[in-house]
Every structure is written in C-alpha cells, then in structure tokens.
Amino acid sequence: MDVVVYSRYDSPEGLDVYMHILQLVTTVDEGIQSIVQYPEDGKQTWEFLCDLTCRDLCQPGDPPLIVQEQKTILSSVLAVMSVMFASQTEQEYTEIGKNLSLIGSLTRILENLETCQKKNKDNHVSDGDGTQDKEPEEDSHLQILRDVCCEFLSNILSRLKKENIVTALKEGHITEEKSLCALRNLLPLYAESVNSFVEVLGEADETMSQTLKKEISVLGEES
C-alpha cells in the first residue's frame, strides 16, 4: 500500500478521503493483514500516521478547541493505529519503546476533549430556554473520538514495562496531570489496563503511583 504524505496544511480534503479509505480497509481481517503482513508497507503507514498524531494534529501550541475541527480525521487516524497496534502481527515499528510519544499525544487529545465538551455543555446550558433539547451534534463526533482514543491508550498502557515508564517520565510523556486525565477517561471501562499501568508505575515512581491509586478510589466512589 502506497502512503501518500499529507498534512493539515496541504490538502485536508484529500487527507480525509485517504484516511476514510484506509479505515474502511482495516475494518476486516484481510484488510489489516494486507497492511501489516508486509513490514515495509506497514512501517510506512505507521510512521505516516504517527507523524500526523504526534507532530501535526492537535499539537501543544494549538487551542483545545482544535479537536472540533480535527475530530473526524483524528478518529480515523487513531482507529487505524489502534487496530495496527493491537494486531497479532508484532512488528518492530509498533514496539512500545519506540512509540512512547503517543502517550503524551493521546492524553493531550483527551485533555482537549474535556475542555471542548465542557465548553459545549456550558454553551448549551446558557443558550437553553428551560426545555429539554438534544445535545449538540458535535458531541456525538467528539464521543467517537474519545472512545477510539481511550481504547488505543488503554492498549498502550497495558504493554508498558518499568523501563518504558522510566523513559516516558524522563521525556515528559507521562506526568501526574496526564495520568489523572487518563484515569478520568479510561475508568471504569478499562480498569484492567489502568491497574496494570499504576502497578508498574509504582516500580518507577512510587509517589505518583500512590496518588493515582487514591484517585482511582475516589473515582470508584463517584461512579
């Protein structure tokens, strides 16, 4: 499969079409195998999508509401990457140690989603006239993005080993703030992945691990 290089600055429409086709391909086993069974093709596809996620879309300098503009393309990109990452064909390019920056990117998307959804909710309430209106249409698309993002992040967290976490802490991909955001979004659905991450985190940073365990307890009481 040839990888066509796009960015949000070149051809947004072309990128949307390309990602839509790629996502459709990966909805069936034959499609995902056609990508991952050839290491070089899979590597090119993965690196292209990783560059979009970590270096192009939803960057640290972007306003949180950028997810409104990028929600469709982000959902497609993350859905394809999640399928590739979870596939039974283990490839060097999907090794967790080579993809720690994805943790920071995914948690940043979740942080922006929280901000965006809160703003949408506040605007919906302030514009209301006391009647029960439907939620804004954007909410459904943002929810899809959140679901895809959470599934992908949970798979990544479940594979982390102590040495991965030590590196991610040092490079800033894992912080207490980002971890708390992950907990808020992943629990209770992905409790197994969260608990696995927190336990391994304890081997690298006991203080942060204890903080997260307390937050898990609080979130459990609120649910």
Results as ranks from 00 to 15, higher is better:
D133V: 02
A168M: 09
S196L: 07
L49E: 05
K134H: 06
V67L: 05
K161Q: 15
D133H: 05
G14Y: 14
N185Q: 12
R146L: 13
T175V: 12
Q88W: 11
Y93N: 08
T53G: 04
L212M: 09
R55A: 09
D41W: 09
Y6V: 01
E95Y: 06
G128S: 15
N112M: 08
E92K: 14
D122A: 12
F48P: 04
T26A: 12
T167K: 11
K98P: 00
R8V: 05
V28F: 07
L183W: 02
I73D: 00
S217V: 08
Q68D: 08
P60V: 07
G172E: 11
S82P: 02
G104C: 14
L212F: 07
L157G: 04
I165N: 01
I216L: 12
S87N: 14
S76N: 15
Q33E: 15
T27H: 10
I156H: 00
R159K: 15
I144W: 05
Q33D: 15
Q23Y: 07
M84Q: 04
R146F: 10
L74P: 00
T89C: 11
P136C: 08
E163W: 08
E137L: 13
I174G: 01
I103S: 03
S126M: 10
E69T: 06
L57V: 01
S193L: 03
L113E: 01
L110I: 07
L189S: 13
L15S: 00
I144S: 09
Q132H: 10
K71Q: 15
C116T: 15
G220H: 07
P188E: 04
L78A: 00
S158R: 08
Q88M: 13
N164F: 02
Q132G: 06
P136T: 05
L49I: 06
N195K: 07
K162G: 05
Q91R: 14
S193M: 03
E215K: 14
V148M: 05
Q117E: 13
S101L: 09
L102H: 05
D2M: 11
D51T: 12
P64R: 03
K213L: 12
L219P: 07
E13G: 03
E40C: 10
Q88C: 13
E171M: 09
E69W: 03
R55S: 11
K214W: 06
E215T: 12
H20T: 10
T107I: 08
V198D: 00
D129P: 00
L22D: 00
E222S: 14
N195E: 11
V198Q: 01
A191S: 13
E192D: 08
V28S: 10
S101R: 11
D133P: 00
I73A: 03
L78T: 03
T167N: 05
C149S: 15
N123Y: 08
L110V: 07
E151V: 06
L186G: 01
Q88V: 12
A86D: 12
G42S: 09
C50P: 00
E221D: 11
K119F: 04
P63K: 10
S11G: 14
K71I: 04
Q44R: 13
V83K: 14
E215C: 14
K71H: 14
T53S: 13
P188S: 05
G31I: 01
I96N: 02
I156A: 00
Y38L: 15
I144T: 13
K170R: 14
R55Y: 12
I96Y: 02
N112F: 07
N120K: 11
V17S: 15
R184I: 02
